[in-house]
Amino acid sequence: MEESPPPSPEPEQQPPDRELVARTQAGDSSAFDQLLIRYQQRVYGVIHNMVNNHADTNDLLMETFSKAYQNIHSYKADAAFYTWIYRIAVNQTINFLKRNKSRHNISMDDDSEDMESQKEFIDTALSGDVERQNKISELQKKLNESLMKLSEQHRAVVTLFDVQGLSHTEIAKIMGCSEGTVRSRLFYAHKQLQKNLKGYV
């Protein structure tokens, strides 16, 4: 059975994922290009909220789509394509974070500033007077720090649920665990975030 559509549904005119996947499997690489264009922002969002670093996100985004392209023949149509690509992205990112734990901890300290200084990042929340902007900026920095204190698994669940807007069922499929585990991780993660952001929210 086809999953519920992803948070930002594909335009009506464009061919469905299943057709594009079938064409890719048949050797039409331009079909995969369409899939990449369709999902690049969402996959970027998942990875970026887990690593909090643009350069690493870009590398992981490339690796994710590269792996998906190489293993497109192993994709089975019983799951939605975006579930499959999210799974690859999450697994790639978790592996990356585990491999680079020491380096990651150092880079995270600088990353909030790095993100704020990046002019290419669009933050619609940052509009209005300067004082409000500063407060929001400080809050976002604190939020990012709190997120980075969570384990990779908890961060992934929070990212998929709260940022990407996926359901517990979808997250369970992506993470390869039960819905109960997803709920449990989500509860724990929210609790930790609330504790770390005490005084801000």
């Binding site: 922002q41 909220n49 669009i122 709260d162 940022v163 609330q194």
Partner: peptide, 14 residues
């Protein structure tokens, strides 16, 4: 917390 996390959807490159 969830409202705050939802604002992270906006964190996207150009």
């Amino acid at each position: 917390i969830q409202k705050l996390l939802a604002t992270k959807r906006m964190e996207m490159p150009s």
